[in-house]
Design a protein around this nucleic acid. Structure first.
Lengths: 345, 345
DNA sequence: CTGTTAGCGCATTCAG
DNA sequence: CTGAATGCGCTAACAG
């Protein structure tokens, strides 16, 4: 037996144990520990087991900041959505997470509360952590955000919209077209005096697009698109829909159908109609957008547009993976939508 | 004029510019750039402006992995919630974000889909990035998760529950007590044949607690608590409530009030009753839990328990800040709840 | 007010 | 299959 080097007491200068500590316990170098933990190198069976035992014994957890610095790979992609408390965007996040699961990449999620300024801050703080790619919602960004993204030299994917001047790749659909499709489906049902309910347009790019689609469709059908109520709020919650329908019916009592920018305000509007003693769709019809769960569960069900929120996330992540593997460059992927007629119209 | 050192061409080996690059352009050392960017050191006015100009010119973005490694401070706290598509937990996240805004700390949010195994993975991957503190939902964790948390040596706050054996600090309330309070309020209204609707209990610790509170209250009132329907799902969505109420009325047709584990299934149940031609609360009363927006907007409104979701987040973050500043050690903070009677009962 | 030195913990690269 | 040397980009600590 030879004299072995005395393991330096691990508890000396505390702080979490390092690879060197693990190596000392397992009788190997830090480098071998690194390889064992990564899992893609050949390590002798016994060595591997000693290392794992040492890891358990010390409660070792890899320090990823050091790894990122050294390997120049952070192992995560960033995604920014307007709101997290919105099942559509939550579905998109789930789509991203699921698609990323087949890689070793993780998702870092942030939300902007529908503010481009907040988006700019968020982009900056995420870029500081060196994501390998970034997925954004929509095509509206501050100019500083745009230049930071350009400088970052990583794939950027804009989703949920089809911007005129994409930064890089796009996975989304035209919210204007989708709203047009909804109106086009409803006109043949005999409605002719369409109202539109929307929140603060300045802070909701997709709502604005839907409004454009609404105008375009009615113009095409030779109908008037002046019955519009806008309440101060982004996003519109259920209660805002209730408030808006009152205003709509006060300002334009002849309205025979109210299209809401989303299903949540549509539901609020429908409940308010019931409170006012109006029947839906007998006295007034109501439609929403987004196919949230409430649209199918409520009685009557709410006519709406399904927009494949999950698919947007899944396909964005797929495209991201392809770009990171250099299998693809900037592409524009259009996702599907379809009108769902239910009892509210 | 002296000969100045030739700035090395920045574009040489590409990759993002470093502080040294910025310093070279501004004619100072990297250290001065670091101080200027941090903002809490005295820097000569002119120097500061040259540095900022260089930062803009190069599009420099701080590399936080390097900063974390060097300073041993990551600048973020981790929070883990069961689901992100749930306005209660989203409110908690908002509370944390808002409270953290007064510090330089950021929030890194993760979600488990109600799986403790997924929580364990998430805790591990978050600890790799060395959060300065971690906020969890509930008191149930795998034993490996517990030991990782113990080893991490950072403040841990468990929320939304009052665990028997807290890891560290707690900010929450007793879900059992809150449910008892609901039943105690309803009994005097004349209801006596209570049904209970819940999802998969194994994966929903808070639902289980509510069930316990339900049993306890009925026992105390000398009533039977056998009218229970459990459907396979966590979390319960609206549609599960619809399915469950059918089953409840089939199995226990004499039920005069159905308590649901949450407002979402309560709403689904209420809509299903309407579809079946039953009036709420005339033929059967319905109550939920959580005071989601739908509970106040729907017609009739849903009787429920408000649980201060936002406050849980805000106070957890406040406690976290206090612990990080050594102003506090492990504390247990109880948050409030109150029963809201509405039209559904 | 600014610079120098050193080292954070890991992974790349090369050597065996 | 394993180890040694080196440096990733930044900041703590000290010196001026």
């Amino acid at each position: 037996m030879s004299i072995e080097q005395e393991p330096r007491p691990t508890e000396a200068g505390n702080g979490p144990p390092t690879m060197a500590d693990v190596g000392r316990v397992a009788g190997v170098s830090a480098m071998t520990v690194s390889r064992a933990l990564k899992g893609n190198s050949y390590i002798a069976r016994g060595t591997f087991e000693r290392i794992m035992a040492a890891v358990d014994q010390l409660g070792y957890v890899l320090d990823q900041s050091a790894g990122t610095l050294s390997s120049r790979r952070s192992g995560f992609i960033a995604a920014i959505v307007p709101s997290i408390d919105n099942s559509n965007f939550a579905d998109t996040a789930r789509g991203i997470t699921d698609a990323l699961a087949q890689t070793s990449m993780q998702l870092l999620l942030g939300y902007t509360n529908y503010s481009v300024e907040r988006e700019e801050e968020l982009i900056e703080s995420m870029l500081r952590r060196r994501p390998e790619g970034i997925i954004l919602t929509g095509g509206e960004h501050t100019s500083r955000a745009r230049s930071m993204l350009a400088n970052a030299g990583i794939p950027v994917i804009e989703t949920w919209d089809v911007p005129e001047n994409p930064i890089n790749a796009v996975v989304g659909f035209s919210n204007a077209d989708a709203m047009e499709a909804l109106v086009d489906t409803l006109v043949p049902q005999g409605y002719s005096r369409f109202g539109f309910i929307i929140g603060t347009e300045a802070s909701d790019a997709r709502g604005r697009q839907r409004h454009i689609g609404f105008d375009r469709a009615l113009l095409r059908h030779g109908m008037s698109s002046h019955r519009v109520v806008s309440v101060e709020s982004t996003p519109m919650r259920m209660a805002h829909g209730a408030e808006a329908i009152r205003q709509l019916l006060r300002n334009f009592p002849d309205t025979d159908i109210a299209i809401c920018v989303g299903d949540l305000p549509a539901f609020g509007a429908m409940m308010e109609c019931r409170r006012m003693g109006l029947s839906v769709p007998g006295d007034i019809a109501i439609a929403g957008f987004g196919d949230y769960e409430i649209a199918s569960v409520s009685e009557p069900g709410i006519t709406t547009v399904n927009v494949d929120s999950y698919g947007i996330g899944a396909r964005a992540a797929g495209q991201m993976i392809a770009m990171l593997e250099k299998r693809s460059t900037a592409a524009t992927i259009k996702t599907s939508y379809h009108v769902l007629l239910r009892g509210s119209t």
